[in-house]
């Protein structure tokens, strides 16, 4: 497999090292000639100096014989152009673009360009690890479009002792199941939550903070 990595700084270098160690062929495109020289001394990757959003640079990087291109420059617009160019001009079907502005993730996907956001990944990791005690785990599904969150209700939770139908529930969220003393309860409107219940709630990322606030009484 031949992988092209386009970008500057430490990230392309360490990505290249990791892919090389797995036995892949790696080409790095960087716009910084000093970095290029340094990298060519320290890795076995092919290093090309140039603007990866230009077709001639991609041609130099042997893009016609490439299986995957990863665009990790610091500018979102460059990463988009690199991916689109790779697809249209060189027929590379697998492209991955870094988005620095997390809000661009959706825009890139709508424009047919697979994107990932380190900001989002890191903030999800932090949310999952430094969570408050009530949240047991968060499972993102469908590429993070739906979240399943597992809570353990404390005795200060504001949702206790009220029939579920009387709770003001954020839009697009749903109480899926309750685990009470090892019994699974599928809730209906008259179900009343108790302290110690483990519950699974389905939500979308946009209202996840509202769901957490509603169930724990504290903000994320």
């Amino acid at each position: 497999m031949h992988i092209i990595i386009a970008g500057e700084g430490r990230l392309p270098y360490f990505l290249a090292k990791s892919f090389l160690s797995k036995g892949y062929r790696v080409t790095v495109i960087t716009s910084d000639p000093i970095e290029a020289e340094d990298m060519s001394r320290r890795t076995n990757a092919t290093i090309i100096t140039g603007d990866a959003s230009r077709p001639e640079t991609l041609r130099d990087a042997d893009a016609y014989y490439c299986d995957l291109i990863i665009a990790v420059t610091t500018r979102d617009e460059d990463n988009l152009t690199i991916s689109q160019q790779a697809k249209m001009e060189f027929g590379i079907s697998k492209t991955l673009a870094l988005v620095n502005d997390p809000e661009n993730t959706e825009i890139f996907n709508l424009l047919g360009c697979k994107a990932f956001s380190t900001t989002e990944i890191i903030s999800q990791m932090i949310e999952q690890s430094v969570q408050m005690d009530e949240i047991i785990s968060v499972f993102p599904t469908e590429e993070g479009k739906i979240l399943l969150t597992e809570f353990k209700l404390s005795d200060t939770s504001p949702v206790l002792n009220i029939p579920i139908k009387n709770l003001s529930r954020p839009d697009q969220s749903l109480l899926v199941s309750i685990l009470r003393d090892e019994n699974v309860i599928v809730p209906n409107g008259d179900t009343i939550l108790q302290a110690g219940d483990k519950i699974i709630v389905l939500s979308i990322p946009e209202n996840h903070a509202n769901v957490v606030r509603m169930i724990t009484g504290t903000s994320v």
Binding site: S53, R75, D76, E77, D78, L80, T81, Q84, I107, L111
Partner: peptide
């Protein structure tokens, strides 16, 4: 004055 910026903005 940046072609990639113009490309992205125009697509959006």
């Amino acid at each position: 004055n940046n072609d990639n910026t113009n490309l992205m903005l125009a697509q959006i």
